[in-house]
């Protein structure tokens, strides 16, 4: 056995040539595969499961609610081909109650808002021109090519939204419904409701009072300098807590939580200080605990994370 091992060692001993293996390519391809896999999983799941998990429906709509005055919102003058990374793209008009938790996310090719009062849930998904919204309720990877949409799952909706409107039957359930329509001749928006007594009625009311149009978002954090081109933001507010993330090109991001999340990073120097504050670091990540109790996470592969941390201003 040892002899064969020696022979194989010799066989493997030819000096290696310069390798053409591309690690970055592996990461990029792997990311794409993960996205496709996740999308496939969700699309393959039974509609009931998706509806149960993604929760599309509402309970707060009182019976006999008078029809709200229909407002078609403010349609943007031009169809966007991508979204500005510091804007939200719509504002809710009528809602059954004040939301207790909300998520607002904008990236260049998608915009999402998610709100709940602890019982009903409403999700808004928008894409710019040339894209479409996947059917099953994916929360981030929903901006897809129009040919990826199975249009047999769309049912014509008789709702006065100014343009072609459809019920997305992939998200339909006993307490859920999703209504999508074109907010410009070539760009789609979808409103989905979950955990509702009258989901279709609820979706219809929210859709007809939705104000569509870009609006700057005041985030609780800002950067005095940007590490690379901005890609988007993510703001989550839950009662008295908030979490804000700014995304930049090359996966660079800064995330701030208003409260300590006890984030951990794997290897590196777990106990250090940055500007006198408790911190932990690896080659590309930095976590800093602020005196206010807020926790900051910086991810900047191959570049100075402390420099980027020092560009951050927490304004809430």
């Amino acid at each position: 056995m040892d002899d064969l091992r020696i022979l194989l060692d010799e066989a493997a001993s030819t000096p290696a040539r310069r390798s053409a293996v591309d690690l970055d390519l592996a990461v990029r391809t792997g990311e794409r595969m993960i996205r496709r896999r996740r999308l496939g999983w969700i699309m393959g799941a039974a509609a009931g499961v998706v509806l149960g998990v993604a929760a599309v429906a509402v309970s707060g709509l009182p019976n006999g609610l008078p029809q709200p005055a229909i407002s078609r919102g403010t349609t943007p003058p031009e169809t966007p081909v991508f979204f500005q990374p510091d804007e939200k793209q719509a504002s809710f008009g009528w809602l059954p109650a004040e939301p207790a938790e909300r998520v607002v996310q904008t990236h260049r090719d998608w915009h999402r808002q998610w709100i709940t009062n602890g019982s009903w849930q409403v999700e808004l998904r928008m894409v710019p021109s040339g894209k479409d919204i996947e059917l099953n309720g994916n929360d981030e990877l929903f901006s897809v090519a129009p040919e990826q949409i199975d249009r047999t799952k769309l049912e014509r909706a008789d709702v006065a939204l100014g343009r072609e409107a459809s019920w997305n039957t992939a998200r339909r359930g006993p307490r859920g419904a999703a209504l999508r329509w074109k907010y410009t001749p070539t760009a789609w928006v979808e409103v989905a409701v979950g955990n509702a007594d009258s989901p279709e009625e609820m979706a219809r009311h929210i859709a007809t009072t939705l104000q569509i149009g870009p609006q700057k978002v005041k985030l609780p954090i800002r950067m005095t300098q940007t590490p690379s081109a901005p890609e988007g933001f993510d703001l989550t507010e839950s009662r008295d807590k908030w979490l804000a993330t700014l995304w930049y090109q090359d996966s660079v991001r800064v995330l701030v939580s208003s409260v300590k999340q006890s984030m951990t990073i794997g290897s590196g120097d777990p106990q250090t200080t940055v500007d006198g504050k408790e911190a932990s670091r690896t080659e590309s990540t930095l976590i800093v605990l602020e005196p206010s109790g807020a926790e900051v996470f910086v991810y900047r592969p191959g570049r100075d994370t402390i420099e980027m941390y020092r560009w951050l201003r927490i304004e809430r």
Partner: peptide, 14 residues
């Protein structure tokens, strides 16, 4: 909500 979203973003990078 914030805790789970933070965990997701951090874990991916890590």
């Amino acid at each position: 909500l914030p805790a789970t979203r933070a965990r997701r973003i951090v874990v991916r990078a890590e």
